[in-house]
Amino acid sequence: MWLDHLFPALPLERKSEPEARSAPHPRVRISPGERLLRAITALAGPHAELMEHHEAPWASVTFAGTRHTIVLRYEGWEACDAAEELMAELPEHEFTIPRTLVADAAVVRLDQVLLPEPCMTLELALLLLDDA
């Protein structure tokens, strides 16, 4: 570089050198909302297609947290069977999200079409409370 001739004693960091590129990346912290979404998609099974996910802050006098709305779509007979299993399992499911309590989990809307192919759309409402 042209600065090497002006200041030969100063070591300069060059981003293109291998040492600079091999520096460890900062650790990315996964939010409780992302952990919830991963848990729901695992519980919903491989036939579920995530259509929407909305997160909004929520608070009461004694608690704070977030309210989540998740919309899943199932297409086909096997997928609709999986949707029915999710509807039965969700209210009693024990989520394991660090420092977070799932206070409420419910199916709040179900849209179903039988012809030409069965299709179900589920809207889930979940309330997460900070456990700090």
Results as ranks from 00 to 15, higher is better:
T96E: 10
R67N: 06
L10K: 10
L128Y: 02
V61R: 11
P118M: 05
A106T: 03
V71T: 10
F63C: 03
I30K: 08
A83K: 03
P91L: 01
P46W: 09
A39E: 06
T96Y: 08
A79N: 03
I30P: 02
V108T: 14
M1A: 13
A59L: 00
M51F: 13
V107M: 08
M87N: 03
S31V: 09
E13L: 14
P46I: 09
T100Y: 00
P91C: 05
E123K: 07
R109C: 09
E84I: 02
M1Q: 11
E89K: 14
V71G: 00
M87P: 04
D81F: 13
V113H: 13
A79M: 08
F7N: 03
E89D: 13
L37A: 07
L43S: 01
G45E: 00
F95W: 01
A132E: 12
P98R: 06
G33Q: 04
D81G: 11
E123M: 11
V61T: 15
I30F: 04
L10I: 13
T66Q: 08
S16H: 11
F7S: 05
D111A: 12
L12W: 15
S22F: 11
S22P: 00
T100P: 01
E75S: 09
L6N: 03
E94S: 15
A48K: 00
T96W: 07
P8F: 08
H47P: 06
D111G: 07
E34I: 08
V61M: 12
V28S: 11
T66N: 07
I40T: 04
L6W: 11
H54E: 15
L129C: 06
S60N: 03
L101K: 08
L114G: 02
H53W: 10
R99E: 14
K15N: 09
E85A: 14
A132V: 15
A59Q: 05
P118T: 01
P32C: 09
D81R: 14
V71C: 02
P18C: 02
E13Y: 14
R14Q: 13
R14V: 12
G33D: 01
R99F: 15
L122W: 06
H53N: 02
M51I: 15
A64P: 00
C119K: 04
L12V: 15
M120I: 07
D130W: 10
R27P: 04
E17N: 07
A82Q: 00
A56H: 09
V108K: 07
